[in-house]
């Protein structure tokens, strides 16, 4: 599947284009701010930024219906914002404050929103894959038409539980879309250094699961491929795999110097393939938006992110009594 072909397939409107632009930009600006707060010591621990990968989750969220579920790994800020979680609550969780989505007890890697059907935020590589299939199991059990978007990285794709899950998901025809966000590097190890498989999505064929590779820097391509995957799952045919070729601009986490790749490689991606710039160009060249319109949007997003950042610093740390809360559901 080439980029060009996907673009031909993709049908969109100027309203949709503008929404993708806004959603991706919000994630980008949010992550930049998170990186800044981390540098100031306001965010602790591990913090994995989504910068560069925005088109993946924005494109796929555009394929979802109310009631669908999503679950991902620890590189999760983008997913939370894309599914409509409040940037204030996400940022306050990053700073470990009481108004965070997990009352400050989860942190960057462990955040959840029952309301938005966002099931985490999982810190163990690939653990979310069978759990995602289990969420889909619960929907099939109830005989509704919801699907579960289960995201994982190219690194997780080598974990055994992924294939245990593929096997059962197909066996039981679970409505789960496995999305491999292939950003080329599992921490510091490139895909080429971790497997001889030419493609990750094709591994599903051993279990009879259909799939496709898609250009993850192109939100329209992601949306088009996502629609096919969702239709397949929703019709009761079982799982589907999307391998989304993407790229993260920042290190694996904030503490990663990223010496395993050249500056030039990163710069080329940024200059030639940036998902946000691509849509910006389309909006301008297609005369859907003016420079002034977009500048206005940029400013509003900046305000939203600054507000989240301020909120995340003014929210108090959790009450000390929280130490012993939420270990068990009271009976």
């Amino acid at each position: 599947m080439t980029q060009k072909k996907n673009k031909k397939l993709a049908k969109t409107t100027n309203i949709e284009l503008l929404k993708y632009y806004k959603d991706m930009l919000l994630i980008r600006r949010f992550e930049e701010k998170a990186g800044q707060l981390y540098g100031m010591g306001l965010i602790g621990g591990f913090c994995h930024l989504y910068i560069g990968q925005e088109a993946v989750v924005v494109g796929l969220e555009a394929c979802s219906n109310e009631g669908d579920k999503r679950i991902t790994s620890y590189r999760d800020h983008g997913h939370m914002i894309a599914c409509g979680m409040d940037p204030r609550g996400v940022m306050a969780e990053l700073t470990g404050r009481t108004d965070g989505y997990s009352k400050g007890k989860g942190g960057s890697m462990h955040m959840f929103s029952k309301e938005k059907n966002f099931f985490g935020g999982h810190g163990i590589v690939a653990a979310q894959v069978p759990i995602g299939a289990g969420l889909a199991f619960s929907d099939k059990y109830r005989d509704n038409k919801f699907v579960t978007f289960t995201y994982f990285g190219d690194g997780a794709a080598n974990q055994g539980q992924v294939y245990e899950t593929y096997n059962m998901a197909m066996l039981w025809e679970l409505p789960v879309i496995f999305i491999i966000e292939n950003n080329q590097y599992a921490m510091g190890t490139s895909v080429g250094r971790s497997t001889k498989s030419p493609s990750l999505w094709m591994r599903g064929s051993a279990y009879g699961i259909p799939g496709a590779e898609v250009d993850g820097m192109d939100v329209l391509a992601v949306k088009a491929a996502g629609d096919i995957a969702v239709a397949h799952c929703r019709s009761g045919k079982g799982p589907y795999i999307l391998e989304v070729k993407t790229y993260r601009y920042r290190g694996h986490s904030m503490s990663d110097p990223a010496r395993y790749r050249t500056r030039d490689e990163v710069q080329k991606m940024r200059s030639n393939r940036d998902p946000i710039e691509q849509i910006r160009d389309m909006l301008i060249s297609g005369k859907h938006s003016s420079e002034a319109d977009l500048k206005n949007i940029d400013m509003k997003i900046k305000e939203l992110v600054n507000d989240a950042a301020e909120f995340s610093q003014s929210s108090p740390e959790p009450d000390l009594s929280e130490l012993y809360q939420d270990i068990y559901v009271e009976t």
Binding site: I131, L135, N167
Partner: peptide, 17 residues
């Protein structure tokens, strides 16, 4: 199938669901 890691995770997901 004989796949403890996998079906345990699926069970947990079903419980979250």
């Amino acid at each position: 199938p004989i796949t403890e890691h996998g079906f345990t995770g699926i069970g947990i997901g079903a419980a979250f669901g």
